[in-house]
Design a protein around this nucleic acid. Structure first.
Lengths: 138, 138
DNA sequence: ATCCGTGCAAATTATTTGCATATGG
DNA sequence: CCATATGCAAATAATTTGCACGGAT
């Protein structure tokens, strides 16, 4: 939370109730919600918040490097309160998106730079398959 | 092209001019176009083709494993005539999407399976940065 | 007091769907 | 023939935008 407030101030952005609530919602979950889901979660507590504000705030947070947007094979973006790049696991059955925290892939970007001549700024590693829960149930 | 015709027949789908043209357009390019772009490219030659048909055909090809859909940080899907998984390089400046053909990442899926307990079916490796051309120009 | 952020509604963009017609096997 | 595919238009879904008002600094 301090991180948010600090970063907003450093960038001459106002610290508003809405921004705090949206950021907090995202930090409190590991479900990688999309904008609509965050909005619905906030609505009961903040009935006047608007979906447009959710979109605008998320976009701001992404641009400030506070969170990351992730593209899984869905029609909407999902958001991750952890801005550090890390692989995501997507269950094709239950559609959950999990983080893979312990992973040996941190130097992939450098390998790709050497192979391609690109200057890599960001990587997105998505692994689609079936989660242990869904495997067991089937 | 034979691959397309064979696969369509094996799956009791009709071999139509539209499907051939759409598949061919995708196979002939390395630009990873989206549906709209494919449609515009076909329009001069096939003025009656419809965007809906392009969408439907692409969806069919993906489900038959003939091509792959890729999500880069854009609002539309792009398509790749090569259905084998391979990393993509996305230039944040000129927005081009390239394949990384020679890469040592083919066993990443197995590593992820071991780490996570997921059964991995598909992986998507996207590297965002600046391409050699754009680096030179800047 | 000033300017930025919010909320609302309308606009835009991508994609999907329903259905009548056309066409491949 | 007959089922499937096409083309059109309308519907849906996600996101963005414009603008007047309100609130933070």
């Amino acid at each position: 939370m301090n991180k948010l407030i600090e970063t907003l101030k450093e960038n001459d952005c106002k610290v508003t109730l809405q921004r705090i609530a949206i950021y907090e919602t995202l930090k409190d979950t590991k479900t990688h919600p999309n904008a609509e889901t965050i909005y619905k979660q906030l609505s009961p507590k903040y009935p006047t918040i608007s979906l447009a504000t959710v979109y605008k705030s998320l976009e701001l947070f992404v641009s400030l490097g506070l969170i990351q947007a992730i593209n899984v094979e869905e029609n909407s973006f999902r958001y991750d309160g952890n801005s550090k790049p890390h692989p995501h696991l997507i269950c094709s059955n239950c559609k959950k998106v999990e983080d893979l925290d312990e992973h040996p892939f941190s130097d992939l970007g450098q390998q790709v730079e050497a192979l391609s001549g690109y200057q890599i700024e960001k990587q997105q590693l998505n692994f689609y398959g079936y989660c242990p829960d869904c495997i067991q149930k089937s």
